[in-house]
């Protein structure tokens, strides 16, 4: 199992994706600005009597954001036209998969705590899951970490009076 994982890891480590940063940011946030402007009438109620209503400030922000995005995209298009190199960010597939695993641990810990309405259940799962993620083989680490997880819950529950 360990060897299989190591082989898979070594294979994934070589796989990389290059993202043209400014172009991606420009397009993504331009779209976000457009969507916010589109949904604003449904999401922000206003009174007709207001001189400056609740939509004025978010609208100003989105216009500024879209203007900045247009600048970024324009700059990148100019670079492409002039055959100048773009700024890229390299994303490693192995790193992203590991990040997704960590994120999954966080989400499962949260769901366990919520569904059982016992924070300590989520906390103990979180402690064990991370030790397994780090491939820890020392039993003392398991004892210490689980003990501390229960300790933190107890401190919040009984000292700070947080009921969970």
């Amino acid at each position: 199992m360990k060897d299989k994982l190591d082989k898979l890891g070594a294979r994934l480590q070589t796989k990389e994706i290059r993202i043209p940063v400014d172009l991606t940011v420009g397009i993504l946030f331009f779209l976000l600005g457009g969507v916010v402007l589109l949904i604003m009438p449904q999401q922000v109620a206003i009174s007709e009597r207001d001189v400056v209503n609740g939509r004025a400030f978010p609208r100003l922000l989105m216009v500024l954001m879209m203007f900045c995005c247009a600048l970024l995209v324009g700059k990148e298009i100019y670079k492409i036209a002039k055959k100048q190199p773009l700024e890229y960010k390299t994303v490693n597939l192995l790193v992203e998969i590991k990040a997704l695993i960590i994120l999954a641990i966080l989400i499962i810990s949260y769901l366990l705590a919520k569904w059982t309405d016992l924070f300590v259940v989520g906390a103990v799962f979180c402690a064990l899951a991370f030790l397994i993620y780090f491939r820890c083989k020392k039993p003392s680490y398991y004892v210490i970490t689980v003990g501390m997880a229960v300790g933190i819950w107890a401190a919040f529950r009984f000292l700070l009076n947080v009921r969970f």
């Binding site: 810990s109 949260y110 924070f119 989520g122 906390a123 501390m148 933190i152 819950w153 700070l160 947080v162």
Partner: peptide, 24 residues
């Protein structure tokens, strides 16, 4: 060791976030 530190920070984060308004 980071193996011990990492889950402890997560538990602190979750407990801290929960205790602000006492909800998940």
């Amino acid at each position: 060791p980071q193996e011990i530190l990492t889950p402890i920070i997560v538990i602190f984060c979750f407990a801290g976030a929960y205790s602000v308004n006492k909800n998940y």
